[in-house]
Structure formats: C-alpha cells, structure tokens
Design a protein around this nucleic acid. Sequence first.
DNA 1: TATACATATGAACAGTTGTTCATATGTATA
DNA 2: TATACATATGAACAACTGTTCATATGTATA
Lengths: 133, 133
Amino acid sequence: MADFDRFDRCEVTCIHEEAVSAVRQVMISDDVAQSLADIFKTLADSTRVKMLFALMHRELCVCDLAAVIRASESSVSHQLRILRTNKLVKFRRDGKILYYSLADDHVKTLFKQGLEHASHDEAWAAQFLDFIK
Amino acid sequence: MADFDRFDRCEVTCIHEEAVSAVRQVMISDDVAQSLADIFKTLADSTRVKMLFALMHRELCVCDLAAVIRASESSVSHQLRILRTNKLVKFRRDGKILYYSLADDHVKTLFKQGLEHASHDEAWAAQFLDFIK
DNA sequence: TATACATATGAACAGTTGTTCATATGTATA
DNA sequence: TATACATATGAACAACTGTTCATATGTATA
C-alpha cells in the first residue's frame, strides 16, 4: 500500500503520476464502489428484470408473478428475497397472499437509462421507454 | 407453453387471471430483458465501477488505471475488454499506449441513479453525486 | 385442532465470473 | 531486424449465482 502510494513499483514504468494522483483524489472508496456494484448486481439478471418490469405495471402476488414471467414459484420467491433485501420491492399481506410492488421509482429511472444505452439508435426500445414514461 | 397461456396448470390455484393477462400484454420479451440485464451485469462489479468512475474524471492508459484502482494490469485489461464489448468505453492509441475514456454519458446517469438509490437518506453519497454533476 | 394452501427456506448442483499466471501481439526505437 | 515495452489473450481455478427439489412456515377455514 505504501508502495502503491509512492508509485514506485518497478514493474510499472508508464505511469503518468499527475494523472494517477489527480484521479485518486476524487476516487470512490472500495465500500462505495461495492455498494454501487451491488445495486447493479441486483438488476443484472433477466428473471429479476422481468419481475420488476411486471411490478412496474401493478402489484402482483408471488403466484401471479410466476405465471407472468413463466418461472417456478420457488424461483420467484428466492428472487423476491434478493429484491426485498436490496430494497427494490415492498409487500403487503392480504390473508395468505402477499402482494409485492416496487419500493420506489428508482428502478423505473434505472431501466429507462439502461434501455437508452442498450437501444442507441435502435427502435425496439421505444415502446418500453414509452411505457416506463 | 399452451398450458401457460390457458392458465390451467393445476398446481397453480391462486392466479388472478385478469392481472396476469394484463401484465403479459405489456411484458418485455426475453431478449429485451436479457439486454437490460446485460447492461447492469456490466456495471455489477466493483472493479469495473472503480474503472468507470476513474474514467469519468479523465482519460487514462491501462497502466494508470491499474495504479489508480490498485489492480493488476492483466485484470484491468480483461475488464476493459468487457467494457469495450458493452460499448461503455472507447480508446485512442498514442504510440504503444492506449488511452481509454467513457463512450458516452449513460454511465454517469446510471451511476447517479444508482447512488441515489443506495444512499436513500444517507449522506455519504452526496459528494459523489456532486462530482458526477 | 386438522387441513389446505400461499409463500419461504435450505441443500445441492450446474453454470458463470473474476483473478492470476504464462504467453502472445503490436508498436517504437536502436 | 532485434529489443523493449504497453497491452491483450488464453487456460486454470476458486468463488459466486440461479434453479430445482424437498421441506418448513404461517394463515385461513372447516
């Protein structure tokens, strides 16, 4: 670590010292980088993407969610736990049934940005961006 | 699949048919869900998050990038390939040195949204959101 | 209290991912 | 053309992730 700070690792000969120290000044900590990565990790699975997209439309129970995305209820339940842990969804109970819904609007915004990046100038994303609003 | 479409799987008894078919109407395709998941997957690693955050500040060569985030040059090079493939970074060559930079502003926006979700009412994200602009 | 049922949880397993180490590629300079 | 060096790539391996299957929990109703 001290070695790193002095830029004196002999294997590395091309370092632009000013550039490196300038960027280090503003660099995020490992913890923050990890938190950020964790959010994206939560969204980095097509099953969860489909679940969140469905919940964007309306609240749904576990079993409906499974039917909508054509997945097993067990799988959906496992994934819901991940979404719950990461505060992306909330739920209310009505008898035996749990109704899940989006915790807030962050997911919508993230999906919007994600689709805009994915689509570039392609047209297929237009209707979904439109739906997201 | 026909079974699914008719909602007649005997194991599933709690389906709200109207809800399920309503959401299916607007549901994204598997391909779109996968594309969206792939974008987030690209951002779902703290090494890549740090690399992108560094490149948000200024363009850097592979070796500088490695020094900034304290990772091996080989690892950084592997990760850069992933970022290149997913069109998040671009590069220019100057002699033997390759300078990498962000491909566009989508990453900034995604990080901003991600941090806002992660931070909720916590203060630690303020300076980074401020830096991102 | 017994039964049914919606959902949750745990263990197991295959598939994926990130790092390291060794080696290859491509560019500049002697 | 030979050497140095910045970067890329491939193979190998450990760590992680998502699904399935079996089982548990919790709630309503008979």
